[in-house]
Amino acid sequence: MDLRAEHEIHTRRKGRNVGVGIMLAGFVVLIMVLTFVKITQTDFARAPGTAMPAAGIEGTN
């Protein structure tokens, strides 16, 4: 079997590789968004064992 760059098997594999690539990229984006939501939703500042945030800090921005 010839392994030239334009071989037909490369064309067939391209579709599959692009598909896997898109899925992996989507997965990365999903994890990023999920992480962002988890961090902003969960009140880390009031997690057990941590000090309460100083009054006046919230809402200064």
Binding site: M1, G15, R16
Partner: peptide, 15 residues
């Protein structure tokens, strides 16, 4: 090596 691939006739697609 693709020449040794057992499924040389059919390459599984994403579907």
């Amino acid at each position: 090596d693709i020449t040794n691939s057992p499924s040389a006739e059919y390459e599984a697609q994403l579907g």
